[in-house]
Amino acid sequence: MNWRVLELGTFSCYENMAIDEAISEGVFEGTSEPTIRFYKWSPSAVSIGRFQSMNEEVSIENCNKLNINYLRRITGGGAVFHDSDGELTYSIIGNEELFPKGIRESYKEICGYLVNGLKRLGINASFAPINDIIVGNKKISGSAQSRNNKILLQHGTILYDINIRKMFSVLNVSKEKISDKMISSVEERVTSIKNQNPNIDFESLYKELLYSFTENKQAFFGKLTEKERIRVKELIKKYQSNEWNFYR
């Protein structure tokens, strides 16, 4: 199987999710190769899981004040703050047959690429079922997977640097709870590449993960097809719409 790799790019949250969905559709229709992509978010954004409520999870008022976008993903899981400078995100999209059949096993295999990449950077990461990667007992990466029409889409983030105060300002946590104690408590449970080793630059992180995702695969650097680009433009409207973002 020949895998297409889309090199690191920076997009709005609407474009990022539209690209993932357009690729999934292309793979389903047989017009796109299975794909691995890496991306960043600009402006920063909050994504909520498919089954969450936007009003419950996100402070829309603060997002608007801080020019932070918000949207609903097609994957389950929790709300995530995507800091434009603080994380690297990946997606892997292909027919289910390319991955272990079980949901848990497929998380383990794909998260294994991240674990291997982080280990090569000297970070002693390990897989924490169902969908996390930890260093010691602290989370450094979370992933979410969707399966539709026999197509598996998994995307996930690797924390490069964390701004916990900013994160709490856009997630719906009451002001009383955003205490120093709470921030310390999160710092005890979450870590980042920078926390682990301040000398690792973003480019090195990307290169290692690119290597570990494509190791033992036939892969080529590609671009979105014309069909995908047209579909992305249509899907952006869905991800910007209140109908989708507030449907729960």
Binding site: F51, Q52, T75, A144, S146
Partner: peptide, 15 residues
Amino acid sequence: IRIFGDFFVYPDEGL
């Protein structure tokens, strides 16, 4: 009834 949360449901329309 509406059920909300950070769980996963496969396939997506299952909930």
